[in-house]
Design a protein around this nucleic acid. Sequence first.
DNA 1: GCCTGATAGTTGAGCTTGTCAATGATACAC
DNA 2: GTGTATCATTGACAAGCTCAACTATCAGGC
Lengths: 139, 139
Amino acid sequence: MKPTSPPARDPWALLVRLFFAQRANLPPLAAELQLSPAQCHVLHFIEPDRPVPMGELAETLACDASNVTGLVDRLESRGLVRRRPSAGDRRVKVLVLTPTGSRLRALLLDRMTAPPAALERLSLREQRALVRILGRLLE
Amino acid sequence: MKPTSPPARDPWALLVRLFFAQRANLPPLAAELQLSPAQCHVLHFIEPDRPVPMGELAETLACDASNVTGLVDRLESRGLVRRRPSAGDRRVKVLVLTPTGSRLRALLLDRMTAPPAALERLSLREQRALVRILGRLLE
DNA sequence: GCCTGATAGTTGAGCTTGTCAATGATACAC
DNA sequence: GTGTATCATTGACAAGCTCAACTATCAGGC
């Protein structure tokens, strides 16, 4: 007895299931690149040539600022990221990728966006529809 | 210059972006239910009336078995989960939800599957197409 | 100029998450 | 039976994470 389905609930429930099913892929991928999952998130968020204030990173990761300190400490000690003073505000430090970090990030993104086999089974028409719909979700 | 797009790569890249954009929602939701994100994953995976061997949980979470031990220890001490001996194999222990755990899980799923506003903006036609395509991805 | 209050990042304590190596109990093949 | 593989646990330890306290800086009013 479910005459009227709640609006937009079914597609989202499916997406959540897809998230969880896909979630297990990150740990092995991270291990392959000698990173932790958390470090992958940081690296993923810092685009080359777009310095990111540490506070913005904490907000994006939905975690405490002091956590970002340690996270960045470890990435910096491995030469993947550098802290630099911000031009306008001397309290903030912005994060930039080193060349090594930039290369590792490219590798990470490449691996992460390798589509699972199930996607290949979709017809071209379905793939295009999916791109269009997801584009609207992300805008 | 990208005349031919690699097959199935674009839709997956979009899905990955959606994963990351949505990822930040779990920590606050978990905190609201007095759980950690990891505990949410465990609770999410144990369906009521479907006992799960601990080893299967470790595999699904892509983590070490000893990690599951601690995770379950804390959930069990809070009365959300119980360990029970397996009928067929006396080495394995299966996990079952307590009534409390079952209620909390239902609450969690309800909150998790509350669709973000962006989904409401899709037309009914698009929502149906999304359901159909995602269903094929998950089968 | 000088308070006052807010903000960015760090530090230290303490818990949880996660790994690895070793262990005890059980299953299974021979 | 004996040997070997498997399941869960334990202990040691690194990393992730939060909270409270602290320093340095900013921004507003006077």
